[in-house]
Amino acid sequence: MEGIITLNGEPIEGVSLNFVPRAMIRPSVAQTDSSGRYRARFVSTQSGVALGPCVVELSIYRGDSPRNYLPKQFNLQAEANPDFNLEVTESGLVFNYDIVYAGDIPPN
């Protein structure tokens, strides 16, 4: 799984993505680079996301702060958003998303 994440139409670095399968197995993770691109990893040596339904959670942390700059609708409450409920198949999936958010997010 790969894609591009933007914030209000602009690429954003440092967005953490969790792809949480509905099956009780390990989630895949990713982080965007300076062009907003990411590639999900199941483990450090294997890319991809488990097949089947999953929920995508987006978070933005800066420095050593434990604060997530994105509201819960993008992470803890992501399951309620149809855009974040995905069905991963063997043919793969590209997940691109534009975070529309008026809050203040410090640079990476």
Rank of each mutant, 00 (worst) to 15 (best):
G3R: 02
I4L: 13
L7T: 05
G9L: 06
I12T: 14
V15P: 02
S16Q: 10
S16V: 15
L17K: 02
F19S: 06
F19L: 04
R22G: 00
A23R: 13
A23P: 04
I25S: 01
R26P: 00
P27C: 15
S28M: 04
S28W: 14
V29T: 09
Q31N: 04
S34A: 13
G36Q: 02
R37F: 13
Y38E: 05
A40C: 14
S44T: 13
T45M: 07
S47V: 10
V49R: 03
P53E: 15
P53D: 06
V55W: 01
V56Q: 09
E57N: 08
S59C: 08
S59L: 10
I60S: 05
R62P: 01
D64T: 00
P66D: 10
P66A: 09
P66K: 07
R67P: 00
R67I: 08
Y69F: 15
L70T: 07
L70C: 05
P71W: 11
P71S: 10
F74T: 02
F74Y: 15
L76G: 11
A78S: 14
E79I: 05
A80F: 06
N81R: 15
N81E: 12
F84H: 14
L86Y: 06
T89H: 06
T89K: 13
E90C: 02
E90N: 15
E90V: 05
V94K: 04
V94T: 15
F95C: 03
N96T: 02
D98I: 07
V100H: 04
G103P: 07
G103D: 10
D104K: 12
D104M: 03
I105K: 13
P107Q: 03
N108R: 13
